[in-house]
Computed example of a mutant assay.
Amino acid sequence: MKQSLASRLGLYFSVIVLVSPAILVFLWMLSLSLKNEADNTAFPPVFIPNPPTLANFIDVFERNDFVEYTINSVIVSFGATIAALLVGVPAGYGIAKAKAGGSAALILVARITPGLSYLVPLFLLFQWLNLTGTLLPILITHLVITVPIVVYVMIGFFEGLPGELEEAALVDGATIWQAFRTVALPLARPGIVVATILSFIFSWNNFIFGVVLAGRHTRTLPVAVYNVLTFEQISWGPLAAAALLVTAPVLILTLLMQKEIVAGLTAGGVKGG
């Protein structure tokens, strides 16, 4: 009993230590967004706004077309996520069933390679095709991020599925495509949910492709944070307000889908017999 209590307290303490820096940063960003500029630059720092103000949020909306940026982000993130699922789920299934470890390693390399390394050749390509300034090149470049995520997540899930079910379907006369569609795909639903959420989050938060390839009317929400910066000074209040507005959709999505994320990641860690 004492050992169980001690291990539980140790787990809680470890979680607090790991999570507290992120929580403190988020609370400080919230504090900056609700204070005027005098309080934001005061020393010693003022943590609790007195009184709180929404002027920073109003300033962000006045200086940026947030509605247009939000529509652009939704189009790009949903488009990149859907395209990645259409390509990545079958690819993950094929790699898992073929036990192609080399292909899996290649996908991992593509996943950990910085997106900045793809930027120059892709920019030159889209400039040659006269597509810079439109949403299409941003959507295509986001596939560099989303496809490896989907493929790598789905490899783990398909490797964990019992092979006997698909073998039974093949014995009954089903083709490999029918076995994938009717047997493997429904069982891999938790993995698809996790891959969808992760792809959307990484696509939504991507900044570098949007700031380089986007035009005046095709910028995404993360670029709005960049637009708040000026050469004269850093306005901490509007900057924090813009960052909160960009983070809010992803944060809400994560909180709403946290059970599905945990269930999917847990299911992906269980190997079939």
Rank of each mutant, 00 (worst) to 15 (best):
V60Y: 05
E62G: 11
E62Q: 15
R63L: 12
D65S: 08
F66Q: 06
E68M: 15
Y69K: 05
T70W: 01
T70K: 03
N72K: 08
N72V: 01
V74S: 04
F78I: 15
T81N: 03
A83F: 12
A83H: 07
A84K: 03
L85H: 04
V89Y: 01
G94T: 07
K99P: 09
A100V: 13
G101Q: 12
G102T: 14
A104L: 12
A105R: 15
L108E: 05
R111C: 14
I112M: 10
P114D: 03
G115R: 10
G115S: 14
V120L: 14
L122S: 10
L122A: 06
F123E: 05
L125Q: 05
Q127Y: 07
W128I: 09
L129P: 10
N130Y: 01
L131W: 11
T132E: 07
G133N: 01
P137T: 08
I140D: 08
V144W: 09
V144F: 14
I149C: 11
V151R: 02
V151P: 02
M154S: 06
G156E: 05
G156W: 05
G156N: 08
F157E: 00
E159H: 05
G163K: 14
E164Q: 10
L165H: 10
V171L: 08
D172S: 13
A174C: 15
I176E: 15
R181E: 14
A184G: 08
P190S: 07
P190I: 05
I192K: 08
